[in-house]
Write a protein that binds this DNA or RNA. Structure first.
Length: 461
RNA sequence: GGUCCCAUAGUCUAACGGUUAGGACAUCGCCCUUUCACGGCGGAGAUAGGGGUCCGAUUCCCCUUGGGACUACCA
């Protein structure tokens, strides 16, 4: 049987990094196994689900290059199907209507909790007959509960191995707020079955839901699926990272010019590691090498220092013309006029960038000179007059034509590299730190060079 | 409180029961170098504690400790 997996976000908020990682692991697993990856929108919660959130999720997936192999599945469009299965459970006596009031239940739970017992539903409405239940449900507000069999649920998790839960602690859980309003645990089971999902790969926070879903699965007579629970992504104090933080960071990364491939590379390493020691991976390599067996059990602290490094590495892997394209959103309009020049500048600055938004800063000296203090032209303890002398000499070298950079290097080797090249670099960039003077010269040419050198000389005198 | 899960450096991680416990990020130092970045070389830094099993435990078992998730008529 071929592998079928899904990623099932609920559109109650913007897509966050944790979701991207879960989706990535599912997607990679499917690709590796030659299977199918499905995107399912879990919008059964009408109050909180919003279209704009769904749009955001889809838009981001496109950016990452992760796509659903089949049409997107929306729970809100499947209400009839859930209803069918709900009825089936009701008819078989495996589920029943419950008319208990929420606030009464609440105080019951409180009482149980204060006695140190796990709070659970008493099963009071179990005794209501099918007919009575249905009748009352027409006029009275009712929820549907599943009869929880008392048993030990055991399953083998792909990443955790054998896991077991005692259903005695659960009680009869609510699976729907009525025939038209299925709840998460129930809808998941139905959807996974309807879409023939073979492997459920999701975050560890879902581990306690698994036995409940297995019970529902059994009641419905569905075959079981293989579960795999991914380690949580934690903050520096080892707590599960907040959705809010994860959402903001994804938006921030996009705005800062992190490459999707670098983010994916960073995320895949959060809980997984290839067989060798290689860590810089392209998406294609991830697809080839991913395996559930090598997924970590312990939670991973989210530390983005490595993301910066990975992003720098990925920036270097992008072919130059593509990189120019990608850097464009960060380039001031006036710099876009000369694309040949822009390309050369990108070439000289790509290794200096950690993220694409670094480009304007790194590229600035190629286009314009910063205002600077005359003292900056001084090399170490040598007098400013030395700098002036060297700049004057370079000026004549440039004016004499030919390959001026060769001549400048010859001169620099004779006079001392720092003596010559430092003031020249400052004259060209006006900066404490910048690319080398010859690189700058090769991009903006002799005319601009002469102008900047003359300005520097005038500053000195 | 209850149930469940987890435990190698600051962080991400590697190690069919036998390794000087490996790699990467970060950090520090040196080199390269006109500066910064890049690059190269090197340093410091870890198996939570205690019991077993075994000729031999990072690895298997138990306990302790610590951390976390879940505990909705949300997903």
């Amino acid at each position: 049987m071929s592998v079928r997996v899904r990623f099932a976000p609920s559109p109650t908020g913007f897509l966050h990094i944790g979701g991207v990682r879960t989706a990535l692991f599912n997607w990679l697993f499917a690709k590796r196994e030659g299977g199918v990856f499905i995107l399912r929108i879990e919008d059964t919660d009408k109050e909180r689900s919003e279209k704009r959130f769904e749009d955001d999720i889809l838009k981001n997936f496109e950016w990452f290059g992760i796509s659903s192999d089949e049409p997107i599945w929306r729970q809100s469009e499947r209400i009839d199907v859930y209803k069918k299965y709900l009825l089936q459970l009701l008819n078989k006596g495996k589920a029943y209507y419950c008319f208990c009031k929420e606030d009464e239940l609440e105080s019951e739970y409180q009482a149980q909790m204060s006695q140190g017992i796990a709070p659970k539903y008493s099963g009071r409405c179990r005794s209501i007959s099918r007919e009575d239940g249905e009748l009352r449900a027409k006029t009275e507000r009712a929820v549907i509960r599943i009869k929880m069999p008392e048993q030990l649920i055991q399953f083998t998790d792909s990443v955790r191995g054998k896991v077991s839960f005692d259903t005695k602690l659960f009680g009869d859980i609510i699976i729907a707020k009525g025939l038209e309003e299925p709840l998460y645990n129930f809808a998941v089971v139905v959807d996974d079955h309807e879409t023939k999902i073979t492997h459920v790969i999701r975050g560890e926070e879902h581990l306690p839901n698994t036995p409940k879903q297995i019970v529902i699965q059994n009641a419905l007579g569905f075959p079981s699926v293989q579960y795999g629970h991914l380690p949580l992504i934690l903050d520096t104090s080892k707590k599960k990272l907040s959705k809010r933080f994860l959402q903001d960071s994804l938006n921030q990364y996009r705005a800062d010019g992190y490459l999707p491939s670098a983010i994916l590379n960073f995320l895949v390493l959060l809980g997984w590691h290839p067989e060798n020691d290689r860590e810089i991976l392209t998406v294609e390599e991830m697809k080839k090498e991913f395996s559930l067996k090598r997924v970590q059990k312990a939670g991973a602290v989210y530390n983005t220092e490595k993301l910066d490094w990975l992003n720098a590495m990925h920036i270097r892997m992008v072919p130059l013309p593509d990189l120019v394209e990608q850097v464009l959103p960060f380039v001031p309009e006036i710099w876009k006029v000369d694309t040949t020049k822009l390309t050369r500048v990108v070439e000289f600055t790509r290794e200096r960038m950690k993220k694409l938004s670094d480009f304007p800063l790194e590229a600035k000296p190629f286009f314009e000179i910063a205002s600077y203090d005359v003292k900056l032209l001084m090399w170490k303890d040598f007098p400013l007059s030395d700098s002036k002398k060297h700049l004057l000499e370079i000026l004549t070298l440039i004016k004499s034509g030919g390959d001026s950079s060769v001549k400048i290097m010859e001169y620099a080797n004779k006079e001392g590299k720092g003596n010559v090249l430092w003031p020249l670099r400052v004259a060209f960039s006006g900066l404490q730190n910048s690319p080398g003077p010859l690189e700058l010269l090769s991009v903006f040419g002799p005319i601009e060079a002469e102008k900047r050198i003359i300005d520097a000389i005038q500053k000195i005198s």
